[in-house]
Design a protein around this nucleic acid. Sequence first.
DNA 1: CAGATCTATAATAACATGAGCATATGAGCA
DNA 2: TGCTCATATGCTCATGTTATTATAGATCTG
Lengths: 103, 103
Amino acid sequence: MLDATFSALSDPTRRAIVGLLANQELSVGKVVENFGLTQSAISRHLDVLENARLIERRRVGQRRVCSLSTGPLQELSEWLEAYRRFWEGSLKRLDKTMARKKR
Amino acid sequence: MLDATFSALSDPTRRAIVGLLANQELSVGKVVENFGLTQSAISRHLDVLENARLIERRRVGQRRVCSLSTGPLQELSEWLEAYRRFWEGSLKRLDKTMARKKR
DNA sequence: CAGATCTATAATAACATGAGCATATGAGCA
DNA sequence: TGCTCATATGCTCATGTTATTATAGATCTG
């Protein structure tokens, strides 16, 4: 699943779509309006996001409303969390260096 | 930069390499030993990780030692942080629902 | 210098991705 | 039913990715 999540988010258009949907649900057409791409291209980006379970599309009358899902982002956060100690450790080391320099 | 970070991490071999290097620095050869891939293939994966600034390679005598960098992972964390409120909000809503059901 | 070791790179093949245009599908409405 | 709006999908082109094999380059060692 992480493969699909990272891969989906590696595209700036798709990250921008995620950003939009974090604020509000939007129909496909409304999403399209935010980019200089064809409806076809956006539809495919939405496919990618949906396959990665990052978004869901549901029919509302004539339209399809897109909403952001939480699962993959949480999973991503957990993966990243395992490395926090790594970079925080490195920050601490840096802090110590700074402190030493002050003395 | 996020493009490159996400893209680099979308491959399980490369995530595994990052996992290895979080624990210790390793020469290219040592990295190769951990996978069923040719040295050439690993070298290219290391290229991808290096271009994304996720790792650095430095020469130590005859070998090239790979080490993990902190920058892109931190950047990733910051990006993700912007969405934390989103999924935590959703968790809170879930908690409330659970609480309501208990009553 | 010659040979061994470690790593990178060129050439190639198979497959995936992302864009556009044109068209199909599905829902609502007259 | 027939028309229209919203969205998806087939086709195609260009480009990128990942792997392999074979080979080149860099460094140590005798």
